[in-house]
């Protein structure tokens, strides 16, 4: 079995938000929507404190509450673990949004553009009216993955088969790959680094691993 996951190295992320911009450019999301965003968080207590930049978005959970609650079956889980939304089935009830503990889902009812109220060329090409009035979220760039696999490329290794946010990361903090493949890049990272997954206690089995080696004040 394949399970695609994202790995974010918090000791490398510098909070530049290039991933956010790359996602927005690739997926033509509206200004108020950020499928990939980066949080500015603090950890520890004075004087042993640390500032961290934490990329978040859909965690493509193995046991996704959004899918269980969806009344229309629009939210589904692919065989490779990616959680997808069928925009033609979704009724826009937002039940998935309140079920998601990662604030990963958005809904907007009308097109709005950041620059002079007009779409940029990329937005004109990629704008999908089907996304209006329904739930939307990070897709792990599943269209790029599918096209890459058809071309015998490896997601997470070949850029043409890899999510845009990962490709764009200037600090090499974001990684993508198949966690079920013991030889994969993400397996190697998770196996060899201290890591956590967010809100694991909720039983969602998230597909987003955070590598984090805490720095003490003495370092």
């Amino acid at each position: 079995m394949t399970r695609y996951v994202m790995v974010a190295d918090l000791n490398r992320c510098i909070g530049c938000q290039t991933c956010t911009v790359a996602c927005r450019h690739t997926n033509a999301t509206l200004p108020e929507i950020e499928w990939r965003r980066v949080l500015d968080m603090e950890s520890g207590e004075f004087p042993d404190v640390e500032r961290l930049f934490v990329p978040v978005g859909c965690q493509h959970c193995a046991d996704p509450p959004c899918m269980h609650v969806c009344p229309s079956t629009a939210t589904r889980q692919r065989d490779d673990g990616i959680i997808s939304i069928d925009y033609d089935l979704c009724i826009g009830c937002s039940y998935c949004a309140v079920a998601c503990p990662y604030q990963a889902r958005y809904k907007t009812d009308r097109n709005r553009f950041a620059y002079d109220g007009k779409p940029m060329p990329s937005e004109e090409i990629l704008m999908d009216e089907k996304r209006l009035g329904v739930a939307q979220k990070c897709t792990f760039c599943s269209d790029r993955i599918d096209a890459g696999l058809e071309a015998n490329l490896t997601p997470g290794v070949d850029p043409d088969a890899t999510p845009a946010c990962v490709n764009s990361c200037i600090a090499n903090a974001l990684h993508f790959g198949d966690i079920e493949d013991r030889e994969s890049n993400v397996s190697a990272l998770v196996d060899n680094s201290p890591h956590f997954r967010m809100h694991e206690e909720l039983g969602t089995d998230p597909g987003f691993y955070y590598l984090w080696r805490r720095k003490s004040v003495e370092e």
């Binding site: 899918m67 269980h68 609650v69 969806c70 009344p71 629009a74 089935l89 009724i91 009035g133």
Partner: peptide, 19 residues
């Protein structure tokens, strides 16, 4: 709801959806 004329889709998922 965002797509009110699709309201019949609400009946599609009795296996797990309380809605």
């Amino acid at each position: 709801i965002g797509r009110p004329w699709r309201f019949l889709h609400v009946f599609f998922h009795p296996r797990t959806s309380w809605m």
